[in-house]
Simulated assay, not measured.
Amino acid sequence: MRIAFAGKGGSGKTTLSALFTRYLADTGLPVVAIDADINQNLGAALGVEDGASARVPPLGAHVREIKELLRGDNPRIGSVDEMVKTTPPGRGSLLLDLSAANPLHRRFGCPAGGATLMATGPFEESDLGVACYHSKIGAAELYLNHLVDGPGEYVVVDMTAGADSFASGLFTRFDVTFLVAEPTVRGVGVYRQYADYARDHGVAIRVIGNKVQDAEDVEFLREQVGDALAACFGRSRFVRAMEKGQHPPLDRLEGDNLKTLAWMRDTVDATPKDWARFTRQGVEFHLRNARAWADRATGADLATQVDPEFVMGPEALANQAVA
């Protein structure tokens, strides 16, 4: 299952991404955490020291290498130069799973909080004024487009702050989107943006109230977001310790907050997987990008990259193993 954490800057989405990653990893199940925020703080929240994370190559700096790998021998992709971030997999593409053999995990991952951490990477000096951060996030989109995750396997993504994620089809690549909102007018503003953008694409958004102090805060959130309010995370001494660079055992987390994490996992596990919709939406956004800019940028008709008989999912992964 793929889980996105979104929200405005300072809402606590990175902290909750890290806590949820740790909670899932404590069960012993496979978990991948991806830092896709322009402010790269997920590794620190998971207890990775700066020196260790610096040794891991950022996904965003190796997009061409990732494309070459995922292209495989797909005959519909003429060259790696014609492969863009939205190019959907087809027969011959390299599909990924969450096993130890995953080449992207081996190349770009590091242990963190019991999970495998990958990061899109920060802005570099050479990026300033000439590049868009979405070019780096495209590496995460390629990864998710080619990943077949099964029951009891999790990918947690800390998204860019605000509604920037809607600049690409990345927001459709998840089974569950948790939007972290403080009980303030600004805190729920991003929810309204997300809800408006996602409404026509079947993306269900569940709001997690954060830094909630009392019943009045809960009532405010419920008035603002209605039934989308799924759970609340209260003020936490445990989180304060995390913000000071400490990483206490998860069993020291306050009982009510631990129950919120458990509820979140139950919600994720109860969400049905819809590979047909995943495939259809991937094709839809690829064709949008092709018409808007990618055909012009590559000099190719990228609509021909769509394999009409291909459906992403376990069957496609099994066929790859047989081949």
Rank of each mutant, 00 (worst) to 15 (best):
K8M: 00
G10E: 04
L16C: 15
D35F: 05
D37L: 10
Q40G: 08
N41R: 13
G43P: 07
A44V: 08
L46E: 02
G47M: 04
G47E: 11
G60W: 06
G60V: 01
E65S: 14
I66F: 03
L70E: 03
I77S: 00
V80S: 09
P88G: 03
L94A: 11
D97R: 04
A100E: 15
P103K: 08
R106W: 09
T116F: 11
G121M: 07
E124Y: 03
K136Y: 12
K136W: 07
E141D: 08
P151V: 06
G152N: 08
S168M: 01
L170M: 15
F171N: 07
D175T: 06
V180R: 01
E182S: 00
T184D: 03
G187P: 01
G187L: 00
A195H: 14
A198Q: 07
R206Q: 15
G209A: 01
K211L: 06
A215R: 13
R222G: 06
E223C: 12
A230R: 12
Q246G: 15
W263C: 06
V283Y: 14
D295C: 07
A297Q: 11
A300R: 11
T304D: 13
Q305R: 01
P308H: 10
P314Q: 10
E315L: 09
A318M: 06
N319Q: 12
A321C: 02
